[in-house]
Design a protein around this nucleic acid. Structure first.
Length: 862
RNA sequence: GGGCGAAUGGCGGAAUGGCAGACGCGCCGGCCUUAGGAGCCGGUGCCGCGCAAGCGGCGUCAGAGUUCGAGUCUCUGUUCGCCCACCA
């Protein structure tokens, strides 16, 4: 990575900094940090020239924050290690782009507005202003000229433009779907539904389901492509979560028909999706989702009251409850039957909440013998259980205690007419082929992934640019009329309902086609729309003749490194991939994927172990910590706390240790002689070393640290990176006040320490670097413009090594040997040790393991 | 309930299948200081033996397995965290 960069050489010792013997000023971050931040801004040190192609580009992106009011410690936890990484890449000679912006639309602004009768825009913009200041106090390398705020028309205009392209391409469509509904406050978000009785957060009214026309984006069109991660360096758990979320399953769609009875003629098709067509002969009943369109038609008059009551009850349940396999099964019989296409049997049709309308066809054939949920259902309602799969040789009518799901190589079909005796996979193919012959089945693929419901019945979001005309129906707003501006004046009328519904000036519009009075769409877009393409816009945030600058996009994207919380695993990170592919297919960009490399940091929780949120009152204000310790200490402490992908409860305990470390770096960099000074009265070298040995030890410590720290930055192991820098400073501290500090090795080691620390603690290192340069009479230059140093391989070679000697895996002795010792010599040395001889007591080892010279294990069978 | 993770001293945590506990906090002892929420030095997994240098045993959520050797790999279980589609 650091190829072509020169090794840092020691500063000439005669010019090394040598502040007075007394009165080393203390490390005062609150004085240093604002001074350097101002200086960097003045120099334009962090302005990225996007047109500079002389260096390799590096697009480093961290998930932009939602401006909720205050940057809490969690934001620092997300941003500052990423900033360190950006700085690390700059030191490797890359042209780094590290932008920041604000995810400005969203529900909290609206909740605050409703509660306190203020304007969501004012609330949001005030928060952004406060957070800008806080961001600047971190000392991050953000280039603020590229800042982006999603609630500005210059940004959301292009959400609308892209939506219109999606609409043209058939990627956007409308259909009915149920929402949580409060009679007073309209559509509710899940977090606005409270309590087990599911009441409205504002008015307390019971929440019901209501069907509304909603806008969808056809994410399922890309389901298969989204399963392909081959070019992506993403964490395995995230890829797994997305794969499971997409949930591809192959199976068959089987056509059952309804049987005629006293109250309806039958003959309706009932399509079911099953992954197990091989079990068709075991289908002893059918289950429809309560929302299934045929329910009303099939229900027998005498059963209607019970069915309606059941449907009403399921409407108050959440999907998570409905899918629980532990819950007691519920359901009702419709009073109608279906005909199983394989054997012509009449089987009863039930409805039950465990079947969802949104998955497959919203109807299943129930095979209780071979499905856990169907089994529980059949047991509860006394429905027949017929075994159709069994390991060969076992009795085919044996009663089951549980659903038989195991897949063993020798299992075969039983009780399945002419298919009995076939293996399960063969049987599946044969049955589907047979039914497919006359159109009663087809092999299909189903996904758990659903299309993206992206309309919101809310004010504070991007208006969806369509117009409803009595004559022309749904009419897209012409491009030249964009943006459809969100009205700035809001009148909530004391309710949670979308105020656009009552904004006559917004609503009334002439149909773009016929000119007749028409009505604007009042739904707005999901805020995940903004985050689905914002990294393209960062490159040209003020561009006003198109959403993206194609030449910059081609050069700078995909993003090289994205960092953000794992809680976004399946939504933002999937929507972004979908959006990128959709843009590609519209011809807007050439690439398939948004983020080449991804790292998910963990989440910082409150001291109570809960998510940080203002409403919980557990947020930690970093400003007072910055005032007390300085930004560098906070940055370093957050990196030192633990593995970055782990997160955990926030506690500032231990921050003093990190601050102390920086204080020591300050001391050894500026005052290596200490009180005693050097010369005849200097302190003795440790361990009786002579000057040459001390210089070797110092160089070895510094270059070993460099070797490991370089990989730790690159691999996001910031906690051990800091630990290794502490180790180095502890080593150097042992030589403080000795003659060793007058040699070139010392100055080299201090330079390396500062360079390695620079990405993580940018202010103190800049201050020390400039002071040392001044003391050495060198021209001023920023440490952040220096090249990352190169390891001197000669400095880190060891001559001896300590090898543990084990007997049966227990360490019993250690021996120091030359590094190149042969196996035979090492073995002889080990067996010759007094302690080992005593323990062996004359017994002969059965085996001796050498583990590549790292260890000797003498194995004796007792 | 399902998906994805995690579990190591008093605490945060470290450890390519090879010396468990790096680094730091806290605590204990000492130094310095008029003073300290400052600084410096030393000690610190648990239990036992020893005045002591030291010696022995036990130890990575529980239980099984693989291996010369397991915190690490496999299986079973427990507990905790994140996500589950209108919070972002």
């Amino acid at each position: 990575m650091s190829e072509g960069h020169p090794t840092v050489t020691a500063i000439d010792e005669t010019q090394s900094s040598r502040p007075g013997r007394t009165g080393l000023e203390r490390y005062q971050p609150t004085e240093i940090e604002p001074r350097w931040q101002a200086r960097w801004a003045e120099l334009g040190l962090y302005e990225t020239d996007l047109d500079d192609s002389s260096r390799p580009k590096s697009y480093i992106l961290t998930m932009y924050p939602y401006p909720s009011g205050d940057l809490h410690i969690g934001h620092w936890y997300i941003v500052t290690p990423t900033d360190a990484l950006a700085r690390f890449h700059r030191m490797h000679g890359e042209n780094v782009f590290f932008p920041i912006g604000f995810d400005a639309y969203g529900l909290p602004a609206e909740n605050a507005a409703i509660k306190n009768n203020i304007n969501p825009r004012d609330w949001t913009m005030q928060n952004i202003e406060r957070e800008r200041k806080q961001f600047r106090s971190m000392g991050a390398v953000f280039d603020w000229r590229f800042e982006l705020v999603t609630c500005e028309p210059e940004f959301y205009r292009w959400n609308q433009w892209m939506f219109l392209r999606f609409l043209e391409a058939g990627l956007a469509y409308r259909r009915m779907s149920p929402v949580d509904w409060c009679p007073n406050d309209g559509t509710l978000a899940r977090e606005q539904v409270e309590g087990t009785d599911r009441h409205c957060w504002r008015c307390g009214a019971p929440v019901e389901k209501r069907d509304l026309e909603q806008w969808y984006l056809r994410t399922t069109r890309y389901a298969d492509e989204l399963l392909d991660f081959h070019d992506l360096d993403w964490p395995e758990p995230i890829r797994l979560q997305q794969t499971n979320w997409i949930g591809r399953s192959e199976g068959g769609e089987i056509v059952f028909t309804t049987a005629p009875d006293d109250h309806q003629p039958g003959g309706d098709e009932l399509r079911v999706f099953t992954t197990r067509p091989d079990t068709l002969f075991g289908a002893t009943f059918m289950v429809l989702a309560p929302e299934h369109t045929l329910v009303a038609r099939l229900t027998a008059p005498e059963r209607r009251a019970e069915v309606d009551a059941y449907i009403a009850r399921t409407q108050t349940e959440t999907e998570i409850e409905r899918l629980s396999t532990e819950r007691e099964k519920t359901g009702v019989w419709l009073g109608a039957d279906a005909i199983n296409p394989v054997n012509g049997e009449r089987i009863p049709i039930w409805i039950a909440d465990y079947v969802l309308s949104g998955y497959g066809t919203g109807a299943i054939m129930a095979v209780p013998a071979h499905d856990e949920r169907d089994f529980a259902f059949a047991r509860k309602f006394g429905l027949p259980i017929r075994r159709v799969i069994a390991p060969s040789g076992s009795a085919d009518d044996e009663a089951l205690d549980d659903a038989y799901i195991a897949h063993t190589p020798d299992e075969m079909l039983v009780n399945s007419g002419r298919f009995s005796g076939m293996s399960a996979p063969d049987g599946m193919r044969a049955i589907v082929d047979w039914l497919a012959g006359d159109g009663r089945a087809k092999a299909t693929v189903t996904y758990r992934l659903r299309d993206w419901l992206f309309s919101r019945q809310r004010y504070w979001g991007t208006p969806i640019p369509v117009i409803y005309c009595e004559r022309d129906g749904i009419v897209p707003v012409p491009d030249e009329d964009l943006p459809v501006r969100l009205p700035e004046k809001v009148d909530y009328r004391g309710r949670g309902e979308n105020p656009l519904n009552h904004d006559e000036a917004f609503l009334r519009v002439a149909c773009p086609r016929c000119g007749e009075p028409a009505r604007r769409e009042t739904d707005t877009m999901d805020t995940f729309v903004d985050s689905s393409w914002y990294w393209f816009r960062y490159l040209s945030p003020r561009m006003d003749d198109g959403p993206i600058d194609r030449s910059l996009v081609d050069r700078w994207t995909p993003v090289d490194q994205y960092t953000g919380g794992a809680e976004h695993a399946v939504m933002h990170l999937l929507y972004s991939r979908f959006w990128t592919k959709a843009m590609r297919d519209l011809g807007l960009i050439a690439q398939d994927e948004p983020f080449r490399r991804l790292f998910n940091q963990g989440q910082i929780l409150g001291a109570d172990g809960e998510r940080l949120s203002k409403s919980r009152g557990n947020v930690q204000d970093p400003d007072h910590l910055v005032a007390r310790y300085g930004a560098d200490t906070i940055r370093l402490f957050l990196m030192f706390m633990g593995p970055w992908d782990q997160g955990g409860p926030w506690s500032p305990t231990g921050i003093g240790g990190v601050h102390k470390f920086l204080g020591r770096v300050w001391t050894i960099a500026l005052d290596p002689h200490g009180r005693e000074g050097s010369g005849p009265d200097a302190a003795p070298l440790p361990d009786g070393e002579d000057a040459a040995a001390a210089a070797r030890t110092i160089r070895m410590a510094a270059h070993r640290a460099l070797r490991v720290v370089s990989t730790e930055y690159a691999e996001f192991k910031f906690n051990t990176m800091v630990a290794h820098l502490m180790e180095l400073s502890n080593t150097l501290l042992r030589y403080r006040g000795t003659e060793a500090v007058d040699g070139p090795a010392w100055d080299e080691a201090i330079d390396l320490l500062l360079l390695m620390l620079a990405p993580a603690a940018p202010h103190i290192t800049e201050e020390l670097w400039s002071r040392r340069a001044a003391a050495a009479g060198a021209p001023p230059s920023s440490i952040h413009a220096q090249a990352w140093p190169t390891v001197d391989a000669a400095a880190i070679v060891d001559e001896t090594r300590e090898v543990p000697i084990q007997i049966n895996g227990k360490v019993r002795d250690r021996v120091v040997v030359p590094v190149g010792i042969s196996q035979a010599d090492l073995e002889a040395l080990a067996l010759g040790r007094d302690k080992i001889k005593t323990l062996l007591n004359g017994r002969t080892p059965d085996r001796i393991i050498h583990a590549g010279g790292r260890l000797v294990n003498i194995v004796i069978r007792e």
